[in-house]
Amino acid sequence: MLTIAGHSFNSNLLTGTGKFASPALMAKAIAGSGSELVTLALKRIEQVQDKDMTLRHLRELGVRLLPNTSGAKTANEAILAAQLARDMLGTSWLKLEIHPDPRHLLPDPMETLLAAEQLVKDGFVVLPYCPADPTLCLRLQEAGCAAVMPLGSPIGSNQGLQTRDFLRIIVEQSQVPVIVDAGIGAPSHAAEAFEIGADGVLVNTAIATAADPVAMAHAFRLTCEAAAYSKQGKLAQPAAGAQASSPFTTFLEPS
């Protein structure tokens, strides 16, 4: 169970819709993932443009839409993208992302905070994609963001949790859900994020570019479900040395 801005989701797995070989395959993978909160982007319409069926498929799946502001290089551009998304899609939920550097796609912390402050005032439910910076995440929380989405490693890199030590601090401090976004390339990376204490993960490239995206979506689904049970069960504490699990020490002797 994942609760964001008072809305409860059965799945703690968020998914993206980019990079799939076809919209139909995307829809099958999203359905297989069990994800209920799914990202999409906005694009200026070109004169010659293949018709994008992403939105139609997502409407049919009945998932909650999470439009992103990808392509925005400044706070002002992100705010306009957010307004366009709300007008088009009828949702105030927003994945705020501002990454001016096209090579590394790393989020701009200052512009992200500026945009978040304004968008929250304008009534948006803001989920900012951000650097794994504990101080920034606190500031975003104070600004009224509904969650924070620190990166595990660069977008699309599949490098896993390169920022794990900072993610631990973010999780420890956060009063809003922490959703690890970007860089999760394998179900084991998602499992590690949950063991650190994350509330959710957002996965796109690892599913979309797998040899069998539907199977990989299912693998992530099972991992995230296992993580939810693990959280409920609470992990046993590690011990310094061996602790016998069977009474073998008394087998040959009277007790």
Partner: peptide, 10 residues
Amino acid sequence: FSLFSAVAGG
């Protein structure tokens, strides 16, 4: 005017 639509994205 600029016209926008929704497309796939992560």
